[in-house]
Amino acid sequence: MTERIWKIGTRGSLLAMTQTRMVQELLAEIGVRSEAVILHTRGDQLKDKPLWKFGGKAVFVTEFEEKILSGEIDMAVHSAKDMPAKTPEGLVIGACLPRENPADVLVVRRGNDFFGGGGKEKRGEKKADPASGPRIGTSSLRREMQLREQFGLENVSPLRGNVPTRLEKLRTGQYDGVILAAAGLARLELDHEPDLVYHSMDAARYLPAAGQGIIAVECRKGGATEALLRHLNDRRTEVELAAERGFMYGIAAGCHEPVAAHAVLGEDGTLRMRVMKYGNGRCRYFSGEAPESRCALLAEELAGQVLAALRPAEEEEDHRTGSRRKDG
Results as ranks from 00 to 15, higher is better:
Asp327Cys: 08
Tyr198His: 08
Ala290Leu: 08
Pro88Gly: 00
Gly213Asn: 06
Gln212Gly: 06
Val264Thr: 08
Asp48Lys: 10
Thr62Arg: 07
Leu271His: 05
Gly56Leu: 02
Ala95Phe: 10
Ile68Arg: 00
Gly250Ser: 12
Gln45Thr: 14
Arg160Val: 11
Met201Glu: 07
Ala128Asn: 13
Arg160Asp: 15
Gly211Asn: 00
Met75Asn: 06
Gln19Ile: 03
Ala182Met: 11
Ala36Met: 10
Val264Met: 12
Ser287Leu: 11
Lys127Gly: 06
Gly281Val: 08
Ala303Arg: 02
Pro102Asp: 04
Leu241His: 02
Gly43Leu: 01
Glu65Ala: 00
Leu297Tyr: 13
Arg187Gly: 09
Gly137Ala: 07
Gly43His: 02
Asp82Thr: 11
Asp327Trp: 14
Phe114Ala: 01
Gly31Glu: 07
His231Cys: 09
Val275Gln: 01
Leu297Ser: 13
Glu314Gln: 11
Tyr285Pro: 06
Pro312Glu: 14
Pro164Ser: 12
Leu39Pro: 01
Glu316His: 08
Asp327Val: 10
Gly322Pro: 07
Leu241Ser: 07
Met1Gln: 10
Gly246Met: 06
Ser323Met: 15
Glu154Pro: 05
Arg135Ile: 02
Pro102Glu: 05
Thr87Arg: 06
Ala183Pro: 03
Gly161Pro: 02
Tyr198Thr: 11
Lys126His: 15
Ala95Trp: 01
Cys96Thr: 11
Leu196Gly: 04
Lys86Met: 13
Ala210Gln: 03
Pro134Thr: 04
Ala210Thr: 01
Lys120Gly: 12
Arg325Asp: 11
Thr87Asp: 10
